[in-house]
């Protein structure tokens, strides 16, 4: 990647992730919980279950169900978010389920549901990625059988420059080729469990973005792993 003196708004290097913070056990009532932050973007997630599926007709007699709920709290952004579900939040909830489902081993919980509630406490872009990272940690903390964690990162293309871990000012970039936002979630083996893209990008650059995501998600994973280990130490 070209790194010829590209200045990011907050002075970071193109591949530099904001300071990450991960902590498990932040909601004592939950069966598992975690916080994950990229700088000012802070997500907390709580897991309840496996518990009986309600409503009845959504029961799956063959395997357990993962049900995620993504929500931004009203004062998480500058302009107040109207409380309640939106089309955006419904979509992110579903995307989060799909991002996490491949690593869950929940065949043994027929008719049961594992509820994951994700709340964005404060937002400066990349909220769905922070939410997925928190949710993966919370599921592990709840002792849900898993093949491994998933780790999520947003890759951006700001004009022609690929960057890792996008912030709001970068997301709103309008000069040159504008901004492209690519949230990606991967397993530790680098398999893609989630990818979305908005903007303008060539196939070649998209492939480069995936390589960046592979490297960056490994860094996210290290932070997640450390938080889990620390929780075990008590």
């Amino acid at each position: 990647m070209e790194t010829k003196k590209f200045k990011r708004v907050d002075g970071r290097e193109p591949e530099e992730i904001r300071e990450m913070r991960a902590e498990v056990g932040v909601v004592p009532n939950a069966d598992g919980s975690a916080l994950f932050a990229f700088g000012d973007t802070i997500a907390i997630a709580a897991v309840y279950g496996p518990r009986k599926m309600h409503p009845q007709h959504e029961k799956d007699p063959e395997e357990g169900t993962l049900r995620c709920n993504y929500n931004m709290i009203s004062f998480s952004v500058a302009e107040r978010v109207k409380p309640g579900v939106s089309r955006r939040s419904l979509e992110i909830s579903k995307i989060t389920e799909w991002a996490l489902r491949p690593v869950l081993l929940i065949k043994k919980y027929p008719n049961m549901v594992i509820d994951v509630y994700i709340n964005i406490i404060q937002a400066n872009a990349s909220t769905r990625c922070a939410g997925i990272n928190a949710a993966a940690l919370a599921l592990a903390h709840a002792g849900i059988p898993m093949k491994g964690l998933v780790s999520s990162i947003s890759i951006g293309k700001i004009d022609k420059q690929l960057v890792v871990d996008v912030i709001k000012e970068e997301e709103d970039w309008e000069e040159g080729e504008g901004a492209t936002d690519i949230p990606i979630t991967m397993t530790q083996d680098g398999e893609i469990t989630h990818i979305q893209l908005d903007g303008k990008i060539s196939k070649e650059d998209l492939k480069k973005a995936l390589e960046l995501a592979r490297k960056a998600t490994q860094k996210v994973y290290e932070v997640q792993k450390k938080a889990l280990k620390e929780s075990l130490r008590g």
């Binding site: 995307i95 389920e97 799909w98 489902r101 491949p102 690519i182 397993t187 680098g190 398999e191 893609i192 469990t193 989630h194 990818i195 979305q196 893209l197 908005d198 903007g199 303008k200 990008i201 060539s202 196939k203 998209l206 995936l210 592979r214």
Partner: peptide
């Protein structure tokens, strides 16, 4: 060939080569 929108949906993972 300029890509403007992309979304992976559903529950299975995808390998990078596959992508």
């Amino acid at each position: 060939g300029t890509i403007h929108s992309l979304q992976k949906s559903n529950e299975k993972e995808i390998k990078i080569e596959e992508f």
